[in-house]
Design a protein around this nucleic acid. Structure first.
Lengths: 216, 216, 216, 216
DNA sequence: AATGAATGAGGATTCATTCAT
DNA sequence: AATGAATGAATCCTCATTCAT
């Protein structure tokens, strides 16, 4: 197809692709800066500079600093969620019934390790940024719990987990995974991702109590 | 002894007592306001108004807004820590070896419920307030993990818990308790403190796996 | 003559016609938007959108926002001026010597009523838009006074008005007409255009004093 | 009364006096700057500089730039209104029934002459400053018309003016006076205040028509 | 002719902190 | 001790205008 034949529609499409790609650039730049300095300490000018634009231009692509951050949260959450879903799906095809749990733990740790600062910002700090962000973060967290809850149901049906209130279980598991992965970003005690993963699976499946100990 | 005879030293002592008490007043006022509006949205003037002082006076008692918040963090943490220690100590005197764990869970939930907004601000949001607060919060969290670690060691020696890396175990337990208590502040699914407590103890001691299920 | 044979000159002529017509479109669009939102609150983008163009294009037709507004002022003023001239000319052919005055009053009211918001913007607010606009507005006002002055001279020569300083008289009459017509845009007391017109003619010709009252 | 006895109430009173006086200073400074540069071109920093303060301090005394301008409008209007009332009252005690009218005209001219730029800004330009100012200006204008209407009623009862709709008459008279006084600020044709005053009184009382001319 | 991305000057406002009284 | 006036750094956002395509 010769360039000559490029229709107006096509040209517009190209332009919109450009715009989308530039939005991506800005988002990436914002990701770096936010991660490094935190939300409040980051200025639009910082982001613009990191993106190689003048600060006025940011507003061509995003309504406001707040909107930009919201988009970053969504994108990052979607990315992690997909990462998790793929890992769990892969593990489900294996024979080991505990594999999906281990996969989720491992995938979360991986993801957190790959983008420490940002994860910290998005999955912890966003709480402190005002109601708008808090609501958004709760929503995101809820979607992770949803995913976990589905996994819990499956595992219960398979007899891997004993019956119980799926929502609370899912919340506990999600929190455990999130917190322990987050811990690795903060402390540095040489606990390998694999050890941690094994530890968590063991905790969730069998607890930490002495085998022969009397039940509570 | 007539007031007239009060020595300069005494007057200063009284004055310093006054000062300490006034600091307390300010801290209480700040607690309310910070809890309601969050750190950034709270102005010194808000705190002063709540304390019945003019805003300039705050600086006679506290170095800065930041220093004030740090003190608030320390005070709240100390308060919770003591609350926990007492609960655990009381439970240790009971015969049931799992009692201290249940007590810690229960005490945390109680404390969180009593001061929802502030707990949220201090134990979550402080992360987002910049490096200074983050360090302080990590320190506080560390001291809770220390306490838990000691408890874990004892329980291991008593044979309640099986041997294992105490630090990681303590971290996991602390996180679980903190997260689940926090959850109650956010969602509202009627899960009673008691049920939650029982659930957590069961999870920690025996896990959620099917009794007869093959070990991972 | 086949389109093919259209000379370059002709095409340019056509093009210039197009350009003129497009300028008109923009002017009309600007008129609406300025009238609705005022000068400062109106953005070039607003005007472009109303004209169905992209905002960058406005600059192909007009130097600047300011130049556009100036042109709008001129056009509206010319339009009103012509409207008045025609009304007065028509009335002059009638026998009644007071008719031209009544015609001017009536025509002004009509014009104002037909485009309330814009008239307000152009004939009042332009004063507040900076020196450039102020000068232009003064010029426009002056041309109305000129017209009125000529009419006053004629009426004096006809013996309808008594002799007197034509410039001041013209200014007073112009102001009266403009202000009273403007008043109808602001207050809403049901005073008909006709009553107002009669009132003004009576005021100008005979004043409001009691017939038998002693002269000042 | 020795300074020692100054009660807390007194000290506060002094402080409040100070505050009021500082507000006055700022208002005066703002008056100069607004008059010179217009509303939009005037920055808070300009006003602060003129008042010998830093720009942040303006906000100690006034909510916003807008609030400051509103206060200026009110103050200026009140001042003119009082000036007029006194002039008219003085003239009423004279025997001449037309004196109050002449006095109003003269007083308005005086006031306008004394503060050209500001009058222009407040009584004309404020219209262009957005709905909030427009409403305020209409209110102010209305109060002048009210005053004039009362005067018209009196003059009608005294037989100086013939009966007629007082509101419209008042509006016409107010407009005439305001416009003609304003004209002196713009054109410069050497028309003395006195001549203008006489001209307006004559116009209002007897009109400009030829004495013997047939009624319209 | 037309587009729309990019620019950057420009300004109001907030608020922690200082300091004279 | 307490007050509250004064300061000024800091930052978001708007929008007219330019210019490469």
């Amino acid at each position: 197809m010769a360039p000559r034949e490029a229709s107006k529609a096509m040209r517009r499409a190209v332009s919109e692709e450009d715009k989308a790609s530039r939005r991506q650039d800005i988002l990436s730049a914002a990701k770096q800066v936010f991660a490094e300095k935190g939300y409040h300490a980051t200025t639009i000018a910082d982001i613009a500079a990191a993106a190689g634009l003048s600060y006025g231009s940011i507003y061509w692509y995003y309504e406001s600093k707040e909107a930009l951050f919201h988009e970053l949260m969504s994108a990052e959450a979607a990315s992690l969620r997909q990462h998790l879903a793929e890992a769990v799906a892969g593990a489900s095809r294996a024979g080991d019934p505990a594999a999906p749990l281990a996969a989720a733990v491992g995938a979360t740790i991986e993801f957190y390790d790959a983008d420490r600062a940002l994860v910290k910002l998005l999955f912890r700090d966003a709480f402190a940024l005002g109601h708008s962000f808090e609501r958004h973060l709760a929503e995101i967290h809820g979607s992770f719990v949803d995913d976990t809850e589905r996994l819990v149901s499956v595992l219960q049906r398979q007899g891997v987990l004993s019956p119980g209130p799926t929502r609370v279980i899912a919340y506990a598991v999600t929190s455990l995974i999130g917190q322990m992965a987050h811990r690795r970003l903060v402390t540095d005690d040489g606990l390998s991702a694999e050890s941690l993963s094994r530890f968590l699976v063991e905790l969730v499946l069998h607890g930490l109590g002495r085998a022969g100990a009397p039940p509570a």
